[in-house]
């Protein structure tokens, strides 16, 4: 990498940092000041503005893992492996957030931390699949084998999602039905202010995803660079 490109990357990164910061500031104001408290559920309902974006983000991240895994097996280029790994790590973090915020909300509303509802169960299974994916990565030495194996698991794991969805749906379900996209059309099931707050929060989380991806990918690239330099300097003399 030449120095100019590094600087340019830095500048882009800085803009993204500012954008993400502003978006989160806006989201916090919207969540804690602007949006009215929900009538029946009370103040605890505000956790939804973290819960839903985290869920969206983790599913998006796992989808990126899937796409990057396919691209890696097709092109065999190291960068797709880096993208897949970074995305899986971010996805697992936000999937954990979903699993933490969910019970906090469920305890006062449902009267139980956890129920074996379809969506809860499928999120938990998804979390385990991608934790196993990250474990697989620690089990192999860095190199082509690790990348190939992880890519295969990234594909197999994502293809499992429809099966998990239908099997646990037919098994049982009582999660709140989706409110944003309902049978009546988009955004009819919710108050407009709530919808706006959720929208801002979604934007903030999505920006955060790209910010974290950038940092993680840069870190992996630097690691490769260090390895390369080490080999060059240590073994050449």
């Amino acid at each position: 990498m030449n120095p100019d490109a590094v600087e340019e990357n830095q500048e882009e990164g800085n803009i993204l940092v500012w954008l993400t910061g502003l978006a989160f500031l806006a989201a916090m104001i919207a969540i804690f000041i602007y949006v009215p408290t929900e009538r029946t559920e009370g103040v605890i309902q505000r956790i939804m503005y973290f819960h839903v974006p985290s869920a969206w983000l983790s599913f998006f991240a796992f989808f990126v893992v899937f796409i990057c895994s396919i691209l890696f097996l097709w092109k065999k280029e190291r960068e797709w492996d880096i993208y897949a790994q970074a995305s899986a790590e971010i996805g697992v973090i936000f999937c954990s957030l979903v699993l933490v915020t969910g019970p906090i909300w469920a305890r006062p509303i449902w009267g139980a931390w956890w129920v074996w509802d379809a969506r809860l169960t499928s999120t938990l299974i998804l979390w385990i699949i991608y934790v196993a994916y990250l474990m697989l990565r620690t089990q192999c030495d860095a190199g082509s084998m690790r990348a190939r194996y992880a890519a295969v698991l990234g594909i197999v794991g994502f293809l499992n999602i429809p099966f998990i969805h239908f099997s646990v749906l037919w098994w049982r379900t009582f999660h709140p039905q989706p409110k944003v996209i309902t049978n009546e059309g988009i955004g009819k099931g919710m108050d407009p202010t709530m919808l706006a707050t959720l929208g801002v929060s979604l934007c903030a989380f999505t920006l955060l995803y790209f910010l974290l991806m950038g940092v993680r990918v840069r870190q992996e690239n630097l690691k490769d660079e260090i390895d390369r330099l080490k080999k060059e300097k240590l073994y050449s003399s």
């Binding site: 699949i129 794991g157 499992n160 099966f163 998990i164 099997s167 646990v168 098994w171």
Partner: peptide, 9 residues
Amino acid sequence: PLLIPIIIA
């Protein structure tokens, strides 16, 4: 984890 759907079924 990948077998859970088929186990339920």
